[in-house]
Nucleic acid binder design. Structure first.
Lengths: 146, 146
DNA sequence: GTTGATTGGTGCGATATCGCACCATATATG
DNA sequence: CATATATGGTGCGATATCGCACCAATCAAC
């Protein structure tokens, strides 16, 4: 049944998140890492509201996550020269280093996974997951029956 | 890359959870529904600690979730005649009815999804997801590099 | 059977999520 | 350019998650 499909997705998300967070320093959780990663991959100095939209979370949640990163010295907030309302979030050297360490540790985790599980099978189903994600993303505001 | 696989899983989880919660009465979220569903599918009168283990969450979290369901009159707590330490969680008529209404609403959501997305493709990749979930589940305590 | 260890539940505190309200700034309208 | 509207950020309160500590009940070891 299709309901079970999403149940499996939920469990895998929970288990993989637990493994990620086991690699993070005390006091940091998945959303913190997601921000560091976003800044690295999509470009440093992002505006908080833009990341909130990218993650599809409320802006108050993003404010809170960034505050935690600032307190740990992993990012710093700067005023945005182009817009006095908004700010920019910049990685610190410590933040760059910490993300890299986590990436390295995750590499070991993935290597272990590859020893016991058919990674090619995951690569094979990834396009379908991507298509589903894109569909759900686009149809975000479409509701059945009101 | 394999990292992106889990990223897709995370996003799909987030989007599907949002859609589920849009179908729930005010004040109830996915974990509440998960408990109602568990009691319906796996058997009524479950012991809280057993559900906490099934969901792989701390027992304090389960206590909290059940408390919310009790306050909404959807389940009731009874003492366990077989073990004075533990309790049992039983669905109320209201709880049974509420779950069914949500199931019905989700049916409409799934029908809408089926109109725009290839459900057979999801059915095709489900076994791989199940295998991955089982693997991660079994290897829960195995760590790479300590 | 007494005693120590284990187990199930919960109060409490720290942190997370998020809606509401508010303020500062920017943009649009005239 | 004065004013209305929109936008970005944050304080606050409600609820969620979860580790720690504690208690009651059970089980294990003798």
């Amino acid at each position: 049944m299709i309901f079970d499909f999403f149940k499996e997705v939920g469990i895998i998300e929970q288990l993989s998140r637990a493994r990620l967070e086991a690699r993070l320093p005390d006091g940091l959780i998945a959303p913190h890492f997601a921000v560091l990663n976003h800044l690295t991959v999509r470009g440093d100095g992002a505006v908080p509201i833009d990341m909130a939209r990218a993650f599809q979370i409320p802006k108050t949640s993003m404010t809170h996550t960034i505050k935690g990163l600032v307190q740990h010295g992993l990012v710093e907030m700067r005023s945005n020269p182009d817009d006095g309302r908004s700010k920019q979030v910049w990685l610190t050297d410590k933040g760059i280093a910490m993300r890299q360490e986590v990436i390295n540790a995750l590499g070991a985790d993935f290597a272990l996974l590859a020893e016991g599980f058919d990674m090619a099978a995951l690569a094979r189903i990834k396009p379908t997951l991507t298509a589903l994600r894109e569909y759900l993303d686009d149809a975000r505001d479409v509701t059945a029956g009101g």
